[in-house]
C-alpha cells in the first residue's frame, strides 16, 4: 500500500451570509495517497474550490482536520504553515485573471522563488526559471513576454511553472483546463500527467468535466451541496455508480457518439437547492427520483459498500 499524503476528517467551511450560514463544505472526508490523483467533481457551487482552498488553508476551515504527511496542519501557527505551504500549491482555472498583467513571464515564474527566498543570488533564480520554463514547455524566447501577449494554453503553462517552482509534493488543480479549447486542454492534461510521472506529484484535480476527471484520476469524489456523496476508484465510479446523483450526472454527459442518441438520457428535474442553512438529510433529496421518508430524517455518513467504494445514499447496499 502506498502512503497517505493528504487526508481530511469531517472538514467544514461555513460562510456567514445575511440569511445565515452557507455550508460550502459540510463534513468532507477525503484521502489521497502519495503520487496519486483524486478527482473532485460536482456542479457549480457545490464547494469544490472551497474544499481545495481549505485544505491548503487559503481559507480557514470552520471545523475538522487536515492531515498532511500525518500531521494536522490546522494546528500549525502562521510561521510553520508558511514553511509547510511550499509543499502544497494550487493552479487556478482562469489563467487570465490569476496572473499579474504587469509582470513578464520570467518575473511571474521567479516570484514564488523570490518571495520565499529560495536562492541567495539573482542568477540562481533565473537559472531555475529557465529550467522551469523548459519543464512546462514554454520557449526561451517568451521569457520577456507579458500574459496578454500569450494564448490561454501558454498562460496556463505559466501557472503550472509557478506552482512547481517551490518543488511541492501536492498540487490542487482547480479547473486548470476548463477555460481552454479542447486541443490546448489536451496539451495541458498531458503535461500535468507527465509531470506527475516524473516528479511523483500528488494531485487533487477539481473539475466539472467528467471525461477529463475520468482520464486523469485514480480515485474520484463526487460532491453535492457541500457533501461528498460518493467516493470510489475511477473505474468503479463509472461502471457502478451508487448514489442517484452520480447516476444522474453520468447519464447527463453528452457523449460524442451518435449511437447513444436514441437512448434519451433521463433528465433530472429541479435545480440545485440553496446551501444556506440546509435542512438535515440527504442534500439531493428534493431532486432525487428515488427519495423516501428516511432520506430526509437525518444526515447519513459515508459508508463503504464495497472495498474502497463509499456513498452516503441510504439505499445503497453492500
Amino acid at each position: 500500500m502506498s502512503d497517505t499524503l493528504v487526508e481530511t476528517k469531517d472538514l467544514k467551511k461555513y460562510f456567514k451570509v445575511p440569511a445565515g450560514f452557507l455550508h460550502a463544505v459540510d463534513g468532507v472526508d477525503v484521502k489521497i495517497d502519495a503520487g496519486r490523483t483524486l478527482g473532485v467533481v460536482g456542479e457549480s457551487g457545490c464547494g469544490k474550490s472551497t474544499l481545495g482552498r481549505t485544505i491548503l488553508r487559503l481559507t480557514e476551515p470552520t471545523g475538522g482536520a487536515v492531515f498532511f504527511e500525518g500531521a494536522n496542519i490546522l494546528e500549525y501557527d502562521k510561521k510553520k504553515m508558511s514553511v509547510e505551504r511550499c509543499k502544497m500549491q494550487i493552479i487556478f482555472q482562469d489563467p487570465y485573471s490569476s496572473l499579474n498583467p504587469r509582470m513578464s513571464v520570467q518575473e511571474l515564474i521567479a516570484e514564488p522563488l523570490i518571495v520565499n527566498k529560495v536562492y541567495d543570488k539573482k542568477t540562481k533564480v533565473y537559472n531555475e526559471v529557465s529550467k522551469l520554463m523548459d519543464i512546462v514547455g514554454l520557449a526561451e524566447r517568451l521569457a520577456g513576454a507579458y500574459p496578454h501577449e500569450l494564448d490561454g494554453g501558454r498562460r496556463q503553462r505559466i501557472g503550472v511553472a509557478r506552482a512547481l517552482a517551490l518543488k511541492p509534493k501536492f498540487i490542487v488543480c482547480d479547473e486548470p483546463v476548463s477555460a481552454l479549447d479542447v486541443s490546448i486542454q489536451a496539451q495541458i492534461l498531458n503535461l500535468l500527467m507527465d509531470l506527475q510521472a516524473e516528479m511523483g506529484l500528488t494531485y487533487m484535480f477539481i473539475t466539472h468535466d467528467l471525461s477529463v476527471v475520468k482520464h486523469i484520476s485514480n480515485e474520484i469524489a463526487v460532491m453535492y451541496l457541500g457533501k461528498c456523496v460518493e467516493r470510489a476508484s475511477s473505474q468503479e465510479l463509472f461502471t457502478a455508480p451508487a448514489h442517484p446523483y452520480t447516476q444522474a450526472l453520468l447519464s447527463a454527459i453528452p457523449v460524442p457518439d451518435i449511437a447513444m442518441r436514441k437512448k434519451k438520457a433521463e433528465v433530472l428535474g429541479g435545480e440545485v437547492a440553496s446551501p444556506v442553512n440546509p435542512p438535515p438529510g440527504c442534500r439531493f433529496a428534493v431532486r432525487c427520483p428515488r427519495v423516501r421518508s428516511e432520506c430526509i430524517a437525518s444526515d447519513a455518513p459515508l459508508k463503504e459498500i464495497s472495498p474502497g467504494h463509499f456513498t452516503n445514499c441510504i439505499l445503497a447496499k453492500y
Binding site: S183, A186, N190, H215
Partner: peptide, 14 residues
C-alpha cells in the same frame, strides 16, 4: 484531443 469516456487512453493526442 477529447478524453474518451469509454476507452482507457493513457495519453491524449492534441
Amino acid at each position: 484531443s477529447l478524453p474518451n469516456l469509454k476507452a482507457e487512453t493513457a495519453r491524449l493526442n492534441p
